[in-house]
Design a protein around this nucleic acid. Structure first.
Lengths: 143, 143
DNA sequence: ATCGTTGCAAATGTTTTGCATGTCA
DNA sequence: TGACATGCAAAACATTTGCAACGAT
C-alpha cells in the first residue's frame, strides 16, 4: 500500500457537501424554536414543497446531533426530538407539556449540586441531564 | 338494568391475581439494585429456569410502572429500564455509566431551583427529571 | 364458572442499514 | 471524475395489541 498525497484534501477527513436537502432541513430548523421529531420536520419539509426523504432527515439529524449542532431529547413516547442549539454554554430545558414551548434555562445551583453529589459518592467524569416539565401560562389558561 | 349486589367485590374494581409469572418477575426485581430493561429481565428469568413470555414481562413492567411500583427510565438507546422503587419520597439517580450501579440521591437545591425557574416563566404543574451520570470509583480505577 | 392473565403471532412505530443512483466539488 | 449524499426498500429493534387458551379464585 504505497501512499500518495491527494490533491487537496487531508486523508480520512470527510468533506461536508452542501445539498438542497441539507439546506432545506437547516432552514426548517432555523425557524423552529421548539423541539421537533424527525417525522414532524419531514412533514414540514413536505409542506414547504421540499422533497426530502424521511431517511435523509433521520440521517442528517443524527449526524448534526453527533456533531453537537443540535440538541436532542428523548420523549416518553420513544420519539427523539431535535432543536438547534441556541446557547453555547451548558444549559437545561423548561418544556411545556401541552404546546411544547421550550425555554432555555441555566442553573448554577444544579451544576454545583450535581458535582457535589457525584463527588460525595466517588463518581468522576460527571455529566447530568435536567429537564423541567410543566404547563406554560397560556396553556394553563385555555387548556 | 336492575342492580344486584355482588357477593364480595366492588363493581368495576378489577382483582389482582397472583401468578407464577408475576411472582418470578417480582423476585428478580427484588434482587436487582440497578435499572434493567425488559429484555434483560426476561433473560434473567430464563436463566433462572422460569419461562415467562417476553410479552408478559412487558405487560407487567408497564402495569407496575403505571401503578408507581417501579421507577422507569428511558435511556439514549431507546430502551426503557425499570427498577423497584426504594424511596417513597421524590428522588433522583446517580448512575455509573460503566457498570450501571445506581445511587439514589435527593436534592433540595434542585427541587427549589426547578420550582423557581418554572415559576419565573409562568409554568404550572411542574415536574422534573434529573439524572447524574458518571464513572463510579471502582470503574474509574480499573476501567 | 368467572374473569384476569398468559403468550403466541402479528402489528406498530421509530430508527438504521444495504445499496444503486444521483450530485456536488 | 470520484467521494459523499440521497432515498428506496427492507431490516432491526423496542413495544403494543388481538385473541384464544389457561388458570387462579
Amino acid at each position: 500500500m504505497t501512499e500518495r498525497p491527494r490533491s487537496s484534501a487531508s486523508p480520512g477527513i470527510p468533506q461536508e457537501r452542501s445539498t438542497r436537502q441539507k439546506r432545506a432541513l437547516a432552514a426548517v430548523l432555523d425557524t423552529s424554536p421548539v423541539f421537533r421529531s424527525a417525522q414532524e420536520l419531514h412533514a414540514e419539509l413536505q409542506a414547504r414543497g421540499e422533497n426530502v426523504a424521511l431517511t435523509t432527515v433521520y440521517n442528517q439529524l443524527r449526524a448534526l446531533a453527533e456533531v453537537g449542532e443540535l440538541d436532542s431529547l428523548r420523549g416518553d413516547d420513544g420519539e427523539t426530538r431535535y432543536r438547534r442549539c441556541r446557547t453555547e454554554s451548558h444549559h437545561h430545558h423548561l418544556v411545556c407539556r401541552v404546546c411544547g414551548r421550550t425555554v432555555e434555562v441555566d442553573g448554577p445551583e444544579v451544576e454545583s449540586w450535581a458535582e457535589t453529589v457525584a463527588a460525595r459518592h466517588g463518581f468522576a467524569d460527571v455529566a447530568h441531564t435536567v429537564e423541567v416539565l410543566g404547563t406554560c401560562a397560556d396553556c394553563a389558561r385555555y387548556g
